[in-house]
Amino acid sequence: MAHPFTSPAELRTRLGEVGYLADDALAMATHLALGLNRPLLLEGENGVGKTEIAKALAELLGRDLIRLQCYEGIDTSQALYDWHYGRQLLAVRGSEDARAADVFTRDYLLSRPLLEALEAGDRAVLLIDELDRADDEFEAFLLELLSDFAVTIPEVGRIVAPSPPLVVLTSNRTRDLHNALRRRCLYHWVSHPDAEREFEILRVRAPEVPEALARQVAGAVHRIRGLGLGNSPGVGESIDWAGALHMVGVATLSREIAAATLSALIKDVDDQQLVTEKIDLVVPSSS
């Protein structure tokens, strides 16, 4: 249970120092993941900073970030390990007695991200990103890894991590993950930040944007999310928008300039129309 933070509050402060502003629940989730050596499953809409938390933790703990981006059709040979077939064939043909040649040993194994993270142990943060994009068979590969921090390779045997790595899984919920996987993890639903926290995030991530403008942007984005768009803008997009507004050289947000720069914030034509229609609600007249 050795990890350097004594309380969720401390972890939260330290995460703030590396540029990630977590809320109470997320700080608790990461604190427990570190203390209990449990994988952390993060779900939430696009652009709420699920991937960023893994990067921030890797930086904070001084560990390597090993990232496995999932996609449809990913399998063990891309995620876990593969045999070096060329070398194996050469070894078999080069040896005196092909039957005796044992080419299924660790030497002929190519590590892929999961195996790499296992062997690195607590020197690594393993990020399994967008797990919902992989097909459900793939989840089964992960079960042994997540509960025991080990993988079994039929020809070699069981490879156990010297010390458990920190594992972060993310999902956008395009499909339901199996309950067997959920139960091995700690779970946290990451929601969009409220206006106040988004303002703090803007101050940290886009320090060049003046404070007054950042506050207006945070407020406007918060109200836009309340409109019920098809795709609500994420934190990354509001940072982009603040940057765009700063670039065109405005000091305060007006309706005209907000509507003109909307392309940095909202990436769907129906949503853009909706926001343009309701721009009076988004940017109150007092500002």
């Binding site: 109470d24 629940a25 604190h31 203390g35 779970y187």
Partner: peptide, 28 residues
């Protein structure tokens, strides 16, 4: 895991207890 979490946290208030329990016990 819930019990282990509380052990890890030591003295907890009601709010910490709420968050810790939610992280461990509610998985959707």
């Amino acid at each position: 895991a819930f019990y282990a979490a509380l052990h890890l946290l030591g003295q907890v208030g009601l709010r910490e207890l709420y968050w810790a329990g939610r992280v461990v016990l509610a998985n959707q």
